[in-house]
């Protein structure tokens, strides 16, 4: 009996793995779906594994233009000076903000968090423009004809420092 239960549990778990990989569980709603999603989160059974599929999406990044009180300007990206692995993760932050872009309140809050982070790193700056950009890579045929890759702006927001904390 114990063996039967264990095999049943193995079978149910693997059925959820297959359903998650086929992106079936993500379409469910209601309390059962919530329970399944909780189980998926704990065990990874609901993951979809669509790495770079069906197409390779564009890289996203957050770029900052910082301005000082004398009008001096500097530019940087989150990944500046970071290792490649940290760079992947910081790049995902920009991707998350883009995914949230339908909810303008959340998008603004995330962009504000990035701006606050840059203000913290640059106490001399009093204005920061945050740009979420995507890498536009031409197809091979276009590249052969002379087209070249470029960054295209998707969202931008400007934040002004209104008060300075005491030194």
């Amino acid at each position: 009996m114990k063996r039967l239960l264990l095999v049943g549990a193995f079978g149910c778990h693997l059925a959820l793995v297959v359903a998650g990989a086929a992106q079936l569980t993500s379409h469910l709603h209601g309390p059962v779906a919530r329970g399944l999603r909780f189980y998926d989160a704990l065990t990874g059974a609901g993951d979809s594994y669509s790495f770079f599929a069906p197409a390779v999406g564009p890289q996203l990044r957050a770029r900052f233009v910082l301005s000082g009180p004398q009008g001096e300007r500097s530019e940087e990206i989150l990944e500046t000076g970071k290792s490649r692995e940290v760079g992947f993760r910081l790049g995902n932050l920009a991707g998350t903000i883009y995914l949230l872009s339908k909810r303008s309140d959340l998008r603004r809050a995330f962009l504000g968090a990035l701006a606050a982070n840059r203000f913290g790193a640059h106490p001399e700056a009093n204005l920061v423009q945050v740009n979420i950009e995507e890498w536009v890579m031409p197809a091979m045929a276009e590249y052969r004809l002379g087209a070249r890759p470029r960054w295209r702006s998707l969202h931008d927001a400007t934040f002004v420092r209104t008060s300075r904390s005491p030194p």
Partner: peptide, 21 residues
């Protein structure tokens, strides 16, 4: 991957290795 055209015509590899990240 097989559901996307990019993986059949080589564009997926081209796009992936060309991204700055």
């Amino acid at each position: 991957k097989a559901m996307g055209r990019q993986w059949w015509n080589g564009e997926a590899i081209w796009q992936a290795v060309s991204q700055p990240a």
